[in-house]
Simulated assay, not measured.
Amino acid sequence: MTTNSRSAAPLLELEHVAKAFGSHVAVEDFNLAVAPGEFISFLGPSGCGKTTTLQMIAGFLAPSRGTIRLEGCDLTQVHPSKRGLGIVFQSYALFPHMTAAENVAFGLEMQRVSKAERAERVRAALAMVGLSGYEDRHPRRMSGGQQQRVALARALVIRPSVLLLDEPLSNLDAKLREEMQIELRQIQRELGTTTILVTHDQTEALSLSDRIVVMSKGRIEQIGTPQDTYERPSSAFVAQFLGKTNDFTARIEGAGPARIVAGGWSAPAPVGLSGPVTISVRPERIGFAETGLPGRVAARIFQGNHWLFQCETECGPAIVVRPNDGLAQPGEGEAVRLAWRPEDMSLRAGAAA
């Protein structure tokens, strides 16, 4: 298993990378250092620049400016086929006239690997993705999940310095996608292959990544571990895009010491903040308490292992998620008070939008 230490020298570096198509700026001032063995996800909505960035790393697009280095070497003038990268596309891009084994062997043939070594590496790669016995099967006779495994084996068999994944699970149904997420992470950890995943699926990024690069409109909004990015979003965009969140309008009152006040809820205020602020709290971090922000349950929904409550408060609407622990839950129309720990919230200056 890889250590994923970012104290090591970066394997891949992007410095001030930008890409423009005419007057449209697709990627602007992208900076990232990727450690050996790290699993990075580029996460964001369609059109945010994540795929464009991946294509610049792969060499399919040339940066308008900036530098991309792999193991200290500038990739700008290196042909895509010479970069030593493995790529899995959203469409898998398997050759329909080739068997699974022939598809996996294709990159090794381009590398002029001997026939005997090629056969052994293909066998091992297919076994690694759970496709032993499928060597002679053509893609048209394979399920979507099996085709995805062949594409992954084809990318890994060449022993790439970096594995690039362009939304490879998006064509799978929800159950199979979850299974493949687990398998992909296990394979990546076992091999220690540095991996960059492009995805718009927040759950996928949270479950697979060592770090997440959240992008919006061609720019990086935040880089951090899944836990840090989820629990301490640096902007309103990150808070809203990476799962559900509640934004409450609050204010800073008093001085020496000042307090954050939201209705009947309050807590010590950080130094340097004043005036109106916005409190962001994840739904599962809010509880019902005897004291706190007054509200009323507008609706409640039973979702099996938890309850979801929609509440109205003077500081804004709220979604509360509470576990189904067998205890009595407040009913619709019931008055409640909402409370949360200061460490479970993030703050930003200005009123909630």
Rank of each mutant, 00 (worst) to 15 (best):
A258N: 10
R137G: 00
P63L: 12
I187H: 02
V271C: 11
A8T: 08
P45W: 12
S209L: 09
A116E: 15
D228Y: 01
L43G: 04
G84H: 08
G272W: 13
V321C: 02
Q240K: 15
I212M: 09
L197I: 00
A9M: 06
V162T: 05
G22T: 13
R322T: 07
D201Y: 12
I87W: 00
Q111E: 13
A239N: 07
E167A: 10
I158R: 05
A205P: 02
V198T: 02
I212W: 03
L327H: 08
R123C: 09
G326R: 03
Q146T: 13
V297Q: 00
G130N: 09
G144R: 01
D166M: 11
N171C: 10
I182Y: 09
S41Q: 04
K175E: 08
R6Q: 08
G316M: 00
E120W: 13
P226L: 09
E221W: 04
E178V: 06
S280D: 01
T194D: 05
G192F: 08
G333D: 03
T3S: 13
I223Q: 03
K175P: 02
F60D: 12
D136V: 06
P10D: 03
M142T: 03
L11W: 04
T51F: 06
Q77R: 15
S170I: 10
V320E: 01
K217M: 14
L164I: 14
L85Q: 06
E290M: 12
G295M: 02
M345F: 00
L11Q: 12
R159D: 08
I212L: 11
A127K: 14
K82L: 14
D136Q: 15
P283A: 13
R296V: 13
G292L: 06
E13F: 12
G144Q: 04
A250F: 05
W265N: 03
G107I: 07
G243F: 14
Q90T: 08
Q227N: 11
I57N: 04
H97F: 11
A262I: 07
Q90S: 09
E312R: 07
I68F: 12
V162P: 02
A35L: 07
E343N: 02
S91E: 14
A35V: 05
A58H: 12
A105L: 02
Q329R: 04
P270A: 14
P268F: 10
R137L: 01
R285K: 15
D201R: 10
A236E: 15
E290H: 15
I319D: 04
L164S: 06
T313D: 02
T245G: 13
V157E: 05
